[in-house]
Simulated scan of single mutants.
Amino acid sequence: LVQERLLQSEKMSSVGQLVSGVAHELNNPLTGIMGFAQLLLLRELDETARKQVETIYAEAERASKIVSNLLTFARRRRAQKEPANLNTLIKRVLELRNYDLRVRNIDVQLELDPALPETMADANQIQQVILNVVLNAEQAMKEDDGEGTLRIATKAAGRTVTIAFEDTAETVRRIFDPFFTTKDAGEGTGLGLTICYGIIEEHGGRIWAESEPGHGTRFVIELPVVAGAAPAPRVADDARASTEPVQRKRILVVDDEDSIQKLLTGVLEMDGHSVTIARNGREALDRIAQEPFDLIISDIKMPVMGGAEMHKRLSDDGHPLARRLIFITGDTVAPETRKFLQGVENAVLSKPFRLR
C-alpha cells in the first residue's frame, strides 16, 4: 500500500506540473477569446450575430472552468483547511465529468440544500473524494447495463453536513478494501475509495456505503460543521466594480501575450485611459524610469523578467508603484505563485476574466 501510494504521489506530482504549464498556456488565449467576445457584445449587433458571439463566449467560459478544475485537482500541495461549501465542490466535479456521464446515458439528479453551511475543509481533498465516488458509481453503472441514474443530495442536520450519492448499479462488496477493484487491469489500483476513507477520517467525518439488492448503492459522506476564520483572497471582483466615471489614468500593461496587450489596451482606452505596453518586467522598469504612471497591470510569468521580480525591485527601491500594481495570471494554483501572492498585498485577477 505504501509503495502504491508513493508511486501515485510521484505520478500526480508530474501530472500537476504538466497541467499547470498547459493551463497557463490555455488561459492566455481563452482570455483573448472571452475578452474580445465581450467587446463585440458591447456593440450594436443584429440578433443572429449577438447569439453567435454569446455562444463563443459561453463555450470559452466553459473551457476556462474545465481548466480551472483541472488545476485544482492536479496540483499537489499541503493540506490546507479553509471555509468550503460542499455544493460548490460538487458542481466543480460535475463540470469535469458532465460529458462522460452524458455519453454513458447516466442521468445526474441534484438535490443540493441552498442553505448548506460552510465548514472548514481542504477543498482539494474533498473534491478528490467526491470525484472518486462519482467515478466509482459511473464505472459500476457502466458495467451493470451501460446506463443509470446518479442522485446527489446535500443537507445539514445539527452540526453536520451530509452528501449522499445514490446510483442504480448493483452492490460491490469490500468497497473500502485496499487494492480491491472491479476494473480491468490498468484501469484502477483499488486505492481510490480507500484513500477517500482516510481523507474523510482526517476531517473528523465518516464515509460509508449502504445497499439493498436491486436498489443500487448509496454512498454517504458526513462532515462536522467547523467554523473558522480565513483571510479573504485579495481577488479583484469585477461583479462589484463601480460603473461611475473615473479620471483618466496613465496605465502600464506588462504582458508578453499580444492578445492580452490588445485586449487590455482596447478596454482601458475605451474608458479614457492612456496605455503603455511592456513585454516583460525589465522593459517595464525601463519605462517606469522614463515616464510616470498611475497604475501597473502585470502578468506574473513572463520571459526575461517576471512580475514577481519586477515587484521586488520596485519594493526594494521604495517606489509607490509597488503598491499600485495589479497582477493577472493564468495559474493561481501553482505553489510558487500562491506563495508569492499570499506574501504581497496587491490584488490579483485570474485569467480568463470578465471585462464588465
Rank of each mutant, 00 (worst) to 15 (best):
T182C: 00
P178F: 04
E257L: 09
G330S: 10
F179H: 12
I300D: 03
I300F: 02
E202M: 08
R159V: 02
E138M: 15
T168V: 07
G188A: 09
F36S: 10
P117L: 05
M120P: 11
T72G: 06
D238Y: 11
A157T: 07
V220G: 08
V22S: 06
Y99A: 01
V254I: 14
A347Q: 12
T154F: 02
P245D: 13
L89Y: 04
K262A: 12
R324H: 13
H215S: 09
N346C: 15
E269G: 04
R76H: 07
V15Y: 06
V254S: 09
E61I: 00
P303E: 12
K91C: 04
N132Y: 12
S68W: 00
I297Q: 08
P352E: 12
K65G: 08
F179V: 05
L1N: 07
T329C: 11
A121Y: 06
A79E: 12
M310A: 15
N280T: 00
T119L: 09
A284I: 07
T194D: 10
Y197R: 14
R248K: 12
L321Y: 09
G158K: 01
L264D: 01
R102D: 11
R218G: 08
P83W: 05
G281L: 06
L150S: 15
E170T: 14
E4F: 06
A137H: 10
S13M: 03
E111L: 05
S242W: 01
M141K: 14
A23I: 03
I326F: 15
D46R: 02
G158F: 03
Y197N: 10
I200R: 02
E244R: 11
R338M: 13
E82M: 02
T243A: 13
A156P: 02
L349G: 13
R282D: 05
H203G: 00
E222H: 07
V15E: 09
V333Y: 15
G190W: 10
D286V: 05
A164L: 10
T243Q: 14
A241H: 07
E4C: 06
N27Q: 10
V246K: 13
I200E: 00
I207P: 04
L349V: 13
A140M: 00
L89Q: 03
V344C: 07
K351G: 10
L295T: 15
P231W: 00
L321T: 12
H319I: 07
R75D: 14
E210D: 05
I207Q: 00
Q3E: 14
D271I: 00
S274R: 03
N136D: 03
E336C: 01
L18Q: 01
I296S: 06
M310W: 11
T243G: 15
T182R: 05
T88H: 06
D294M: 02
V254T: 14
E47D: 11
R354G: 01
I207N: 03
L110R: 03
L18N: 04
G198F: 01
R287N: 13
S9V: 02
P231Q: 12
R62P: 00
I66P: 12
L89C: 03
I56W: 04
S350Q: 05
V103P: 00
R151L: 03
F293V: 08
R62S: 05
M310Y: 06
L112V: 04
T72Y: 09
I163W: 13
E25F: 01
A232K: 07
T72D: 13
A278H: 06
E257V: 09
D256A: 09
V22K: 08
H24I: 00
